[in-house]
């Protein structure tokens, strides 16, 4: 089921186009990384999908609800953590979340239960009755996650959820996000420009620049695409003989071999590591190291933005 959909979303501010005819489909349960440089239009897209900003043209849908026509229905099933998330500092963590619960129509005992559950989920149970003003940035981010969990949303939009947090805190937050998403079967759209973070937890990514979606799909697919459908294998051998090179050349699917001093760089149409290692051992060669060069998110990103 398509959970989040953008149809020709466009936003124009004072004649400058921030989001340009964006089309997007995100399936239920996906962890979707929304990538792009600063000012690419990530936040604006999220705001339009949430129904917080009116699109100049086009429509956003959340779980089939039109974001601009039925914003309340959308907001009921959507959690949003803005980039600079804030809480009422003079209230306790609990009171802040109770307020959110009440705003979502959850009241009384049920609100207390949901809040306690959410705080426990993010590991802030002991801080239930502490004032938010005593919280660190990382704790506030976890509280923000608890805040959206209170209403058990189907979709959550996280805008730069890791900005300004220390490395250990980032890892913690990301783990929390992916765990929470799995446990609650939540679709998560996470905007970021920290590629390594996105790669860690997201299965799918969309790359946006100047309001246009440049690439979209699962990281695996995009990696294949970035490699142009070819695989590169790097092998280190104790000793390279012409015999071995010829043997490898004869393997089906091998396109090219580059011979270095102790290394061979092989370009092939498939992942042929098994076949290649077999022919090498047949020729009594000794493999010291072998690896498939894969395209990471960073390579994909660089490639996509170079092309754009």
């Amino acid at each position: 089921m398509v959970m989040v959909e953008a149809k020709n979303l466009t936003k124009v501010y004072n004649s400058s186009t921030v989001v340009d005819c964006l089309n997007l489909k995100i399936d239920e349960g996906q962890l979707y990384g929304f990538l792009g440089p600063n000012g690419a239009g990530k936040t604006t897209t999220i705001l339009m999908l949430l129904g917080l900003t009116e699109p100049t043209s086009g429509t956003g849908f959340i779980a089939g609800f039109n974001s601009s026509r039925e914003p309340l229905k959308v907001k009921r099933i959507t959690g949003y953590i803005p980039e600079k998330v804030g809480f009422y500092n003079d209230l306790t963590a609990r009171s802040n979340l109770i307020y959110t619960a009440n705003l979502n129509g959850i009241r009384g005992k049920q609100a207390e239960m949901e809040v306690a559950r959410s705080l426990e989920d993010v590991g802030l149970k002991e801080k239930t009755n502490s004032l938010v003003s005593t919280f660190s940035k990382g704790m506030k981010q976890r509280l923000a996650i608890a805040d959206i969990l209170v209403k058990r949303p189907k979709v959550a939009f996280l805008d730069e959820p890791t900005s300004g947090i220390d490395p250990a805190g980032i890892a913690q937050t990301l783990d929390l996000i992916s765990r929470v998403a799995k446990e609650n079967n939540m679709t998560i759209v996470m905007s970021s420009h920290q590629l390594s973070q996105v790669e860690r937890i997201c299965s799918h990514v969309g790359m946006i620049s100047k309001g246009r979606l440049l690439a979209e799909g699962s990281i695996e697919q995009l990696g294949k695409k970035a490699g142009g459908g070819k695989f590169a294998i790097e092998i280190q051998l104790a000793e390279i003989t012409q015999d071995i090179v010829d043997a490898i050349k004869s393997v089906r699917g091998v396109l090219n071999i580059n011979r270095g001093e102790n290394t061979l760089n092989i370009v092939c149409t498939d992942d042929l590591r098994r076949e290649i290692s077999r022919v090498i051992s047949d020729k009594n060669g000794l493999i010291t190291q072998m690896k498939l060069q894969s395209y990471g998110l960073e390579d994909i990103y660089m490639k996509v933005f170079k092309e754009a």
Partner: peptide, 14 residues
């Protein structure tokens, strides 16, 4: 300024 307003309006509130 506190950042509570954007959290508030993302709740189902007119």
């Amino acid at each position: 300024n506190e950042g509570t307003l954007s959290r508030l309006i993302s709740q189902p509130v007119y």
